[in-house]
Amino acid sequence: MIKQASMMERAEYLFKTSLNIQQLNRRLEKAVGLSLVQWHVLRRVLELPGSAAGVLAKEIGVHPGTLTPLLKRLQGKGYLFLEPDALDARKKTILISREGKTKLLTAEKKFFVIIDECNETKHLFL
């Protein structure tokens, strides 16, 4: 059985990690224009062009309801677009735009440097 003190330590650690990730996200958005989650969603949209939101949510491992605002944000930035399926207009397919692809290409180098720096100072990864 895990002692209460040990459980408190773990909870503290999780809390600090959560704060560090929030800080990392803010830094990434400021420097690169993409948060960690936004980058991940955009990467998956690039790899799976034409996917429906449900399929994409399953691939990413989030609830479709969680994905919707993320998609809207990326769409607002012009990095992706939703297109009605040519055979069934009720279905929307999600596709990366030229701007989105360019963003990924230009941002990723800087993106990974920041993540690495963050890891060195905040020890994000075990």
Binding site: P49, G50, L95
Partner: peptide, 8 residues
Amino acid sequence: RTLEAFCF
């Protein structure tokens, strides 16, 4: 636009 997304 769709073709572009596939080509990427």
